[in-house]
Every structure is written in structure tokens, then in C-alpha cells.
Design a protein around this nucleic acid. Structure first.
Length: 304
DNA sequence: AATAATTCCAACCGCAACGCT
DNA sequence: AAGCGTTGCGGTTGGAATTAT
């Protein structure tokens, strides 16, 4: 946001064009502007943004109007944190398509490319930085597949108890066989034995910066029902990528971070990931499932 | 309670693709 | 084919909000 900027451009003007441009507003949108834009589009539809901006009486560029509408005002925009399913999808689709945000966003109804891009930059890349891994490296991709994704799958299944546990296992095996992770990894890449979800641990503390948080800190509070909105791409549902995990089933859960935050340096290092083990060999396969959730304590001990 | 540091995300920018004349 | 306006995309910015000290 650029709220500190003057709302009206104040550069000197000499031509009519510049004079017009000088009246263009920038920075955060006001409620009045939002109302103008919304009402105009309701009456006349979207498109022809430059003309729309003028006709609606907005002192904004067409570009700005389009962005405001698509990213904020459009009725089907979904607010709130990304659900585990959505995060899973983003991770998966990004591994396929890279930074094709708009393409990824097409598979997340109600989510904008901007939102997904922000999610990637603020959450995903943050983890890469903390792990000292290039976020676009194969190593990080492997970490995502075999550490982060399992947690998300676990979250999904906890919220959808009717789905079988084997579904996530098949999903994970699929994920791991897709990656360049050594082949033997796929056999060990099972869902770790996560602590079971505790409804009593009902506090929405920030888990983003904690290296020792487990799923017990995550709780269903504000229910976000996306069951009728989350659309799984056909190429995923059609294949066994998601196995028979019922991602389209009813899902109500608070969507705080289910990310890699809990996957600490310790978790990574404990299985030989973080400390520069080679990409060959069974660097991630050593009792991961048993150790993943208590390695933070070990890490803390090590750092003392 | 005050201050500093960090995170988050709305909005901007430049560029490329597209469509029309 | 060239020129021009429009649209869409991905990268970047910067200030409000939040968290840490």
C-alpha cells in the first residue's frame, strides 16, 4: 500500500494528457471508489477498463480498476487464509508450472494470482530462506514434497475422517516418485505419525515462527467451508496424485499456517536434509516418521 | 509501555501478447 | 505490415499490522 503517497499526482502539467494524468488517483482505494466501481460493473459488466474508469467517474487508470475488481471486489473472491487443500494444490501446481500464478489461480476458485503469489513469497520462500535452500532448487522441492505436503495431507485427513489413511500414503508415494528424490525414498515417504488432533488445544496462537509447534496448535475455529468451491484439477483427480483422498468432501477448519513452520531445521537435519547431505543415498529416509515431531527438542539441545 | 523488527498483502510497474484498424 | 490501445501476467514495493525485545 502506498497510503503515504499523495492521493492526487501533483506533477506539473503542460499538455491536456498530462493534465488528465495528473488528476489520477493512486494508492489505496476508498470505500466510495469501491462502491462506484462495483455499481458500475453490476450495471454494465466488466471489461474495457479504461473506458469503464472514465464512465464510472473514477479518477483511476483502467489498469488499476481491473486490478481492484479482480483482486478485491469481485463477489466470488474468497477471503481468509488458505486451507490445507489449497496449499497442497499450490505446492503441487507450482512444482509443475513454476511461477505461473494466474494458471495456478485458475485451479483455486476464489483465489487470485496475487494472493497465491504472495503466499508463495511470504510463506514458502520464507521457509527456503530459513533452511538456506534455494526456493527453486530441487532440494527444496524435495523437502516440500516429503515434509510439508505430508503435513498438509494429514491436515486434510484430520478434517475428513471418512477418508482412509491409506489414501494419503498413496498420495505421498506418488508425490515422492514424481520428484527426483532417490527411488528408495518413496518407500519411506509415508505419512509421519503425527500427533493426533486435539480439540482441547483450541488456541489460535501464531505458529509461523515457532520451530516446535506441532499440529496440536492448530485448531478449527473459524469455519471455512470450501467444499463447494474447491475444484480439483482434472489432471489431479483423474490420476492418482490425490489418490482417492476426498478433497472435495466437506471441510471445515481454520486455516492458519499448516506450512513448513513446524518442520524445523531440526526435523530436516535429523534426517540428514539440512546438513548438506548428498542427494544420493538415503538422506531422508532414516526413521523420519518416528522422529519428525520431536526433533525440535533435540535441535534445541544441540544448539545449547 | 515503548521501540524495533518482521510479516503480510494491496497496489504499482514494466513488459508482452493480443486484437483492431 | 505497422501502429495503437487494451488486457493480462509476473515481479516489486512500501506501509499497516503484528510480533519480538
Amino acid at each position: 500500500m502506498r497510503a503515504a503517497m499523495p492521493p492526487i499526482n501533483t506533477k506539473n502539467m503542460s499538455t491536456p494528457l498530462e493534465e488528465e494524468e495528473s488528476e489520477l488517483r493512486r494508492g489505496p482505494w476508498t470505500l466510495e471508489e469501491d462502491t462506484l466501481l462495483t455499481h458500475y460493473i453490476a450495471r454494465h459488466g466488466e471489461g474495457r477498463w479504461n473506458m469503464l474508469a472514465k464512465c464510472a467517474g473514477l479518477k483511476r487508470t483502467g489498469k488499476s480498476c481491473r486490478l481492484r475488481w479482480l483482486n478485491y471486489l469481485k463477489p466470488d473472491i474468497k477471503r481468509g487464509n488458505l486451507t490445507p487443500q489449497e496449499q497442497l494444490l499450490i505446492l503441487e501446481l507450482h512444482s509443475k508450472w513454476g511461477n505461473r500464478w494466474s494458471k495456478i489461480a485458475q485451479h483455486l476458485p476464489g483465489r487470485t494470482d496475487n494472493e497465491i503469489k504472495n503466499y508463495w513469497r511470504t510463506r514458502v520462500q520464507k521457509q527456503a530462506r530459513q533452511l538456506n535452500i534455494e526456493s527453486n532448487s530441487q532440494r527444496f522441492l524435495d523437502a516440500v514434497r516429503c515434509f510439508w505436503m505430508p503435513r498438509l495431507v494429514q491436515k486434510v485427513e484430520q478434517a475428513s475422517p471418512s477418508s482412509s489413511s491409506s489414501s494419503s500414503s498413496s498420495y505421498l508415494k506418488e508425490m515422492c516418485t514424481q520428484s527426483s528424490v532417490p527411488s528408495q525414498l518413496s518407500s519411506c515417504c509415508t505419512v509421519p505419525s503425527f500427533p493426533t488432533f486435539s480439540p482441547l488445544a483450541n488456541k489460535t496462537t501464531d505458529i509461523s515462527n515457532s520451530s516446535s509447534v506441532t499440529t496440536q496448535n492448530i485448531c478449527p475455529t473459524d469455519s471455512i467451508n470450501i467444499s463447494d468451491q474447491t475444484e480439483i484439477p482434472q489432471h489431479l483427480t483423474g490420476s492418482n496424485v490425490y489418490g482417492h483422498t476426498t478433497l472435495d468432501q466437506c471441510y471445515n477448519i481454520d486455516s492458519n499456517d499448516y506450512g513448513m513452520e513446524g518442520i524445523s531445521f531440526a526435523s530436516m537435519s535429523a534426517v540428514g536434509f539440512y546438513e548438506g547431505t548428498s542427494s544420493e543415498g538415503n538422506w531422508m529416509c532414516t526413521e523420519m516418521s518416528d522422529n519428525l515431531w520431536n526433533m525440535d527438542d533435540i535441535w534445541q539441545l544441540r544448539s545449547m
